[in-house]
Simulated assay, not measured.
Amino acid sequence: MAKSINKDQKLDNQLCFSLYSASLAMGKMYKPLLEKLGITYPQYLLMLVLWEGDQITATELSQRLGQDKGALTPVIKRLENLKLISRHRDPGDERRVFIELTTSGKSMQKEAESIPEKVLLACGLTRQSAKVLREQIEVLRQSLKP
């Protein structure tokens, strides 16, 4: 016999599950778009940051993506192996590592131009409704910061 459960304890009523399952679905939707470029979703996010402003430090990159530098290191190495980025140490401070786009990495930006529009279409969103949703999610994210 099924137990009676408080409606607040049902999986489908959990905000965390809605966000989690939406994130999984978004990843699945991006996969074929990014396979054409030969990169993964985490690599795409890193490339987006570099397309906004090339030659940044690994620390700045980790702050921008909200991830630990250690978690980004394998992603950086794979992009370097793909010859999309290069790394070099700051001669004035060996602890600082600069990451910059290669010629191939810069040209990939043109190949990726259609992705945001395809994502909006797949999500059934307009630019305006996507902006409102992003703003709501950002408010949530900021409220969860320690």
Rank of each mutant, 00 (worst) to 15 (best):
Q109S: 10
M29I: 08
Q109Y: 09
T126L: 08
L48A: 04
A122Y: 03
E138N: 05
M1V: 15
T40S: 15
E135Q: 13
L101S: 11
E80C: 06
Q128R: 07
F98C: 03
V75Q: 02
S107V: 11
R96C: 03
K69V: 11
P42R: 06
G92M: 14
L144Y: 04
R95D: 07
I85N: 00
R96Y: 11
L144G: 00
L48P: 00
K3V: 14
G105N: 03
S62Y: 00
V75I: 14
K28D: 05
Q67N: 05
L82A: 06
K83P: 00
K118E: 10
M108K: 05
L15A: 10
K7S: 13
R95A: 10
G105I: 00
D90S: 06
K31I: 04
L84M: 15
L48Y: 03
R78C: 11
I137E: 10
T59H: 11
E94H: 07
A22P: 05
L50P: 00
G70M: 06
Q67K: 08
Q142S: 11
A112L: 02
L11P: 01
A2V: 14
E60T: 10
I5E: 15
P146E: 09
N6W: 05
I56L: 07
K131M: 08
A112G: 13
T103K: 14
S21N: 09
L33P: 00
R89Q: 11
K28S: 07
M1H: 13
L46Q: 02
P74S: 07
V75Y: 01
A130M: 06
L120R: 08
V119E: 01
Q67T: 10
A58S: 12
L133V: 13
L11V: 12
L15T: 15
S4C: 13
P74F: 12
Q128K: 13
D90Y: 09
N6D: 13
V97E: 00
K145D: 14
L19F: 06
A25I: 05
D12M: 08
G124H: 07
L65T: 06
C16K: 12
